[in-house]
Design a protein around this nucleic acid. Structure first.
Length: 427
DNA sequence: TCTGGGGTCCTAGGACCC
DNA sequence: TCTGGGGTCCTAGGACCC
């Protein structure tokens, strides 16, 4: 059996964990740049705050009910996430089979738990996580990952009744659940497939599970569709991935806090994003063989990104893969100069590191120069300082000192759990 | 006036090779 | 003038996820 443990309103729960005064109160968390609502507590949802809607649109309801609002505080969420996942690993013990799927979700292989104990075991997981971390979770259990996700959704739909736990093992239970679930609520069915399916008259997960595999192969993205159908029928077709797999691409992209018209500011922003991306790169001991940059002007659709149109993005292959910030900045700033058009207003920029390979300089390669080794030590020192002190205590001059373009984040909570000076005091 | 950011996997089709 | 078949690698683009 497969379980998925999913934190309830994760970002909101993190904010409330250190603010007892907000327990049972409506809370929302905003995306970067304070753009839209990305997390809302049950209380906020019941007041009518929509998910993923722009902040300014939700403003009337928020003001009317005095809903608490936070900018995203990724240091806090990252740390809380780590605590939740460690709790799950501890619970599973030696033969720990935990796959961290996202910041607030993990799959667990429960094959070693007898069927009739799954309900109790799920409750034990839930209670322990809440007690150790202060984060409330929902647990879905079923024969496959896709069905576990479905179970979890049902658990969350009626928390009073389910106690945030749904275990689906019997054939009848599974059929009922499939009949109650719409295709567009399934894991693996997005907007495009949902529209197609509904057009064909397939509306419930149950109906979809009864379609032939060949049909799925032709109409739902080949092997992907076949796996989905099999999973719905209870045949595990998506395996557990326990080891942390190195990323194949690393991106850092941001909206600016205000439109930017000055080349130097765009350069600064891109240099800053490269610095951030290079940190991620070094954290997984990789080096990048290619750098891409994109800038988005004010008139362009805000969903436009680096994939569309050569006018806004550019790509360069490096003479050799590197993890050194200054080399990556040099390449990226060169691209900015080619892309930038005087007189245009820009609202967003981003960088992408790809063609990632293991960082050879770490091995003390016979052919790498002494200077490269020195640089590597410098990077290591910078990463350590920036991690333990304030952000960007040490940085490259090209990333700028004033950062007028920096995103808005006016409502961020203190970093309760990762900064000494922000620690809560208990008197 | 104000709408996020960061990823993955798969397939089709072109270039190239023998 | 006629012009095969099979393989690999790469890239763009579509779909999905949280």
């Amino acid at each position: 059996m497969n379980a998925i443990v999913d934190c309830n309103s994760f970002y909101c729960s993190c904010e409330r964990a250190f603010r007892p005064d907000l327990w049972n109160k409506p809370v929302v968390v905003l995306s970067n740049n304070d753009g839209c609502i990305v997390s809302r507590s049950d209380e906020a949802r019941l007041l009518g705050v929509g998910m993923a809607i722009p902040y300014f649109q939700a403003r009337p309801i928020i003001d009317k009910h005095g809903i608490s609002v936070f900018s995203s505080n990724y240091h806090l969420y990252g740390d809380m996430s780590w605590r939740v996942m460690e709790t799950l690993r501890t619970l599973m013990g030696e033969a720990s089979k935990v796959e961290v799927y996202s910041v607030d979700e993990a799959f667990m292989d429960l094959d070693h738990i007898p069927i009739h104990e799954l309900e109790d075991y799920s409750r034990h997981i839930k209670q322990t996580v809440e007690q150790w971390t202060g984060i409330s979770v929902s647990v879905g259990v079923a024969p496959t990952k896709t069905l576990a996700k479905m179970a979890n959704r049902l658990a969350k739909k009626n928390k009073q009744l389910s106690g945030c736990i749904k275990v689906l093992t019997g054939e009848d239970e599974l059929r009922t659940a499939l009949q109650q679930t719409r295709v567009d609520d399934l894991w693996g069915v997005g907007r495009a497939y949902a529209a197609k399916l509904i057009n064909w008259g397939i509306t419930s997960a149950w109906e979809l599970s009864n379609m032939p595999e060949e049909w799925a192969h032709t109409n739902m993205g080949g092997i992907v569709g076949v796996r989905l159908i099999r999973e719905l029928r209870g045949l595990p077709s998506i395996g557990m991935e326990e080891e942390l797999i190195d990323k194949k691409m690393i991106a850092t992209t941001r909206m600016f806090g205000r439109p930017v018209t000055d080349l130097h500011e765009v350069r600064e922003a891109v240099a800053t994003y490269i610095s951030r991306a290079a940190e991620k790169l070094r954290r997984q001991h990789s080096a990048a063989g290619a750098v891409s940059v994109f800038i988005v002007s004010k008139e362009q659709d805000h969903h436009t990104d680096f994939r569309r149109g050569a006018t806004i993005s550019n790509y360069t292959t490096l003479p050799r893969a590197t993890s050194l910030t200054h080399e990556l900045i040099k390449a990226a700033v060169g691209l900015v100069d080619r892309l930038f058009e005087q007189g245009k207003e820009y609202k967003k920029a981003g960088v992408m590191l790809s063609s990632l390979v293991p960082d050879a300089s770490i091995q003390g390669n016979l052919f790498s120069s002494h200077a490269a080794g020195e640089h590597r030590h410098l990077m290591h020192a910078i990463d350590n300082i920036n991690f333990s002190m304030r952000d960007d205590s040490v940085k490259f001059g090209s990333s700028g000192m004033n950062k007028h373009w920096k995103m808005r984040q006016e409502l961020r909570s203190p970093r309760f759990s990762t900064r000494w000076e922000d620690l809560r005091e208990v008197k």
